[in-house]
Write a protein that binds this DNA or RNA. Structure first.
Length: 262
DNA sequence: ATGGCAATTGGAAATTGA
């Protein structure tokens, strides 16, 4: 089973890229983030023409996540509320969570808030969102021991994942509070970074700023991840970053990350 | 220290991203 995550930065603008990539890489499930479109306007047909089912949770202009699957998924759920109840329903206004089951594996597709700047209101929102994610994953794991949590985490787990970690304490995506929130939400639940099972090198990035020729100079960050529960981690055969689409015309600033589970 | 680029909305320039 192959599952990929890709922040496409607008599914409508990137539709041709997604179709081309899926044609060349017919993964079982493609988890996309930042679809930036209301559900009624989501371009389902071109993906269905490739033989894929689409499960979407979108909103106007911002955010938005979707599962694009070769076979029908079971138990598709949107947001935190189906697991945590209505007390945190305000966090579901922004569409950042969608989950589905495939062959006993529960796939959780996340678009973690960016956080803007350390100390800002958006940064506080990000930390609160991650603390709720912790409760969410904890509850989820009791129900579904085979859990794959992937998406755009907007956090570099360690300094190997940043081209220049200088001053990272005060930088969004790299501050200690964000890393601690990731630790509590993900690692403390026993979930493990699939990519690092196969590759220990620094400089393995999934996102490059559009500005300053960052991709050409490989000034990037590794902020798109697959986290696996122990049973799935043992079954993981490979996890790779596909840098190719970043070099295409009018690319997303993120690239796909693919994990293979046997 | 700053800007740099891109997408969206709305029909210019502001907001957001990371």
């Amino acid at each position: 089973m192959k599952i990929a995550t890709w922040n496409v930065n607008s599914i409508r603008t990137r539709l041709d890229h997604v179709v081309q990539w899926l044609t060349e890489n017919p993964v079982d499930v493609l988890c996309v983030q930042e679809t930036k479109v209301e559900d009624t306007d989501f371009p389902r047909s071109p993906l269905e023409a490739l033989g894929y089912q689409t499960y979407i949770s979108g909103q106007k202009s911002y955010n938005g996540v979707a599962l694009i699957s070769r076979t029908p998924l079971q138990e598709v759920r949107m947001g935190f509320a189906p697991i945590l109840g209505e007390t945190i329903a305000d966090l579901d206004i922004q569409k950042r969570v969608i989950t589905g089951m495939l062959e006993g594996v529960c796939v959780v597709n996340l678009y973690v808030p960016n956080g803007s700047e350390v100390g800002s209101e958006k940064y506080q929102y990000k930390l609160r969102w991650l603390s709720v994610l912790r409760d969410y994953l904890k509850a989820f794991l009791t129900e579904h021991p085979d859990l794959l949590v992937c998406g755009d985490f907007n956090i570099a787990p360690d300094d190997r994942d940043i081209h220049d970690p200088t001053g990272r304490e005060n930088r969004v995506m790299a501050s200690d509070a964000e890393r601690q929130a990731l630790e509590k939400a993900v690692f403390a639940q026993g979930l493990i970074d699939a990519f690092r099972k196969f590759n220990q090198e620094a400089g393995q990035f999934t996102w490059w700023d559009y500005r300053a020729a960052a991709f050409r100079r490989n000034l990037g960050w590794r902020i798109d991840h697959h986290y696996l529960s122990p049973g799935l981690y043992d079954r993981a055969k490979d996890c790779v970053i596909d840098r190719q689409p970043r070099g295409w015309e009018k690319p997303s600033d993120h690239v796909p990350v693919i994990v293979e589970i046997e």
